[in-house]
Structures are given as structure tokens and as C-alpha cells.
């Protein structure tokens, strides 16, 4: 069990570092081909309302998100800094996990704000790629815009 715990914690660490290092292409590699990924507010999730701020049905859609960020969308230079808590892992199958996160957003000028807190709810395939992931954010409001994934 501790082997699996380390693997899942390691996966969330790679997830976070890929975003924080602006290596979104590496971040994509953590997902299974047929993954589903969404970022949704706690209010909607708890009310059973299905709309998300980001929703990808398959890794190709996630890849489109990344290429749009690289080539189409316009937003002020910004980075994130993730801090992720130790994952609560269920061996399954499938392996599932929950982990809390804090994301600080750092603007080009150096202003830092606590942009989002929430939790990851993930299910993995046998190769421990992300098959299903919902980022449930606690902050009711999104400040200005959400460009980079949480």
C-alpha cells in the first residue's frame, strides 16, 4: 500500500510541477487517451449541476486547451505555485485518490494571490494515468479569468 501511496503522491507532484514550470505538454502525458477532465465549483458539484469551467472529454480536447493557451488565447503573463496535500488513496480497482490543493497565482509584476483552493478527485488506469479527474474548487469566485489549468 505504501508503494501505491508514493506513486499517487508522486503523480500529483508531477502534475503540479508540470503546470508550475509551464510544461503543459508534459502535463498532458499524465492523462489516459480516453480521460475525462473537468474543473468545477464546489457549489455546482454539491448541487449536482453538471456545468464546468473547463471540461475535456478525452486527451485530444485537453491538448486543444493547451494549444489554445499557447496560440490563441490572450492573458497577462502569470504562473501558478501549487501545494498539494498527501493523497487519500483507495487501492480499488480502479485506484482512486483525493488530495487537497492550494494554488497561488503569480502575475508578471510579482503580485501573488491565493487564487484557488480545492481538491482533486481522480481515478487511474492500470498504468496509473489519469482516467477521470474533477478539480473541485472551493473559491466561489474566479478572479479575473482562469487560463492555466488548476
Amino acid at each position: 500500500m505504501s508503494g501505491l501511496q508514493d506513486e499517487v503522491d508522486g503523480l500529483f507532484a508531477r502534475y503540479a510541477m508540470a503546470i508550475d514550470d509551464d510544461r503543459l505538454e508534459d502535463w498532458l502525458e499524465l492523462f489516459a487517451e480516453d480521460c475525462r477532465y473537468r474543473i468545477a465549483s464546489r457549489d455546482n458539484v454539491e448541487a449536482g449541476l453538471p456545468v464546468s469551467v473547463v471540461y475535456a472529454d478525452g486527451r485530444a480536447m485537453l491538448a486543444d486547451r493547451v494549444s489554445a493557451l499557447r496560440r490563441a488565447n490572450i492573458y497577462e503573463a502569470q504562473r501558478y505555485r501549487h501545494v498539494i496535500g498527501r493523497a487519500l488513496v483507495e487501492a480499488g480497482p480502479p485506484v482512486t485518490a483525493r488530495a487537497g490543493y492550494h494554488v497561488a497565482r503569480i502575475m508578471r509584476e510579482g503580485d501573488v494571490m491565493l487564487f484557488s483552493t480545492g481538491e482533486y478527485r481522480a481515478a487511474f488506469d492500470e498504468a496509473l494515468r489519469i482516467r477521470e479527474m474533477t478539480v473541485v474548487y472551493d473559491n466561489a469566485r474566479i478572479d479575473t479569468l482562469l487560463a492555466l489549468p488548476l
Partner: peptide, 22 residues
């Protein structure tokens, strides 16, 4: 639900609107 990606705070065609007013 898929096309909700186009609009909203992270919308492909609307995220900029969250910032231009600023």
C-alpha cells in the same frame, strides 16, 4: 456541457473579456 468551454471565466472565446476591463 462541451460548448460551455467556449464561454465563462475560462472560455476559449471569453476569457479575455475577464481581463480587458481591468
Amino acid at each position: 456541457l462541451l460548448q460551455a468551454n467556449l464561454v465563462g471565466p475560462a472560455g476559449f472565446i471569453s476569457m479575455e473579456d475577464g481581463a480587458v476591463g481591468g
